[in-house]
Simulated scan of single mutants.
Amino acid sequence: MDLDAVADELYGLPPGEFTAARDERARAARTAGDRELAERIRRLRRPTLAAYAGNLLARERPDEAGQLLRLGAALRQAHQQLDGEQLRQLSARQHQLTFALSRQAGELAARAGQPLSDGVRQEVQDTLHAVLADPEAAGEWARGRLTKALAAPVGFPAPATRPAAATVTDLDSARARRRRRQQEEREQARRRADEARREQRLREEEWSVAEAQQRRAEEEQRQAEDERRQAEQRVSDLTRRLHDAERDQRRCQEAAQQARDHAQAADRALREARRRAEDAAARADKLDRL
């Protein structure tokens, strides 16, 4: 058992199954004598639903994931080189691919029994935009071990939902209005997502405290179990010694009774012998007087 193998297994599980499986693997490592690995496993954080969906996408759709990673590299290069034409072309591709992949993530999660709300789907799409903008985020996502959604980048070439004048100058006015409307919707969704993430951080802090309390309780339970077993062993030893002592007591009582019986018999024999001696002495005296 090693940490990478355990992490790969755990982050492929739905969030609701993560904690129990993680704790089971930690207990197995501790039983095997590797307390350091057990503690490292126990520190693994349960993924949010959006992170789980993003991990599922990276794991189940490697070809599409590779397309996104290559598009991100091309976008970052075009951005650094200020290549407007390349940015125009890649921006359209960016929108198409992230939208398609976020939809696929939703389908994969739904098939796994984890349907996504619109807000969670938006978090998945923000994660995909972060993957395009940041090579470190891309590497983290490609491993399939995200614990929370990644924040959408600021200052990177905008997805194609921005107004036409910002990125693509040759789009017609109808498409520009649609993109402005989509941008407004995204801003509203982002504000809701920010609020949800603040709530998430609060709950994760509470969860962390609860996990620490659980670990302390489990340690106290283990110590109590050890003390109980030791006490039961002491009781067993004392019970055995008590049984041995009671057996010795009965044997001694029987021996004492036999000794008393022998003493009483000897006393009777002594009295009888004394009586006979006295009778004999009396007859001898009587004969001497004749």
Score class of each variant (00 low, 15 high):
130 A>Q: 02
250 R>H: 12
132 L>Y: 02
234 R>N: 00
168 V>H: 10
48 T>V: 01
174 A>W: 14
215 R>T: 10
226 D>Q: 13
197 R>F: 00
253 Q>F: 00
235 V>A: 12
243 H>Y: 02
167 T>V: 11
133 A>M: 02
150 L>D: 09
56 L>P: 03
83 D>E: 10
23 D>T: 10
156 F>G: 11
240 R>T: 12
108 L>W: 05
70 R>T: 15
244 D>I: 08
29 A>M: 08
99 F>H: 15
70 R>K: 15
92 A>Y: 04
28 A>E: 07
3 L>R: 10
198 R>S: 05
182 Q>A: 10
59 R>Y: 08
41 I>Y: 06
253 Q>K: 03
54 G>H: 04
164 A>L: 06
131 V>R: 01
62 P>G: 04
1 M>I: 07
271 R>A: 12
135 P>H: 04
166 A>P: 08
285 D>A: 06
166 A>R: 08
16 G>T: 15
37 L>G: 10
105 A>Q: 08
123 E>D: 10
115 P>L: 02
131 V>K: 02
65 A>G: 11
172 D>P: 14
110 A>C: 01
185 E>V: 08
140 E>R: 15
160 A>L: 12
106 G>T: 02
249 Q>M: 12
72 G>V: 01
170 D>C: 05
18 F>T: 08
141 W>C: 03
48 T>N: 00
150 L>S: 11
269 A>R: 14
115 P>I: 04
189 A>G: 07
106 G>K: 01
125 Q>A: 04
157 P>D: 02
177 R>W: 10
245 A>N: 04
7 A>Y: 08
206 E>R: 10
90 L>P: 12
257 Q>G: 12
141 W>S: 09
204 E>Y: 00
249 Q>A: 13
230 Q>E: 10
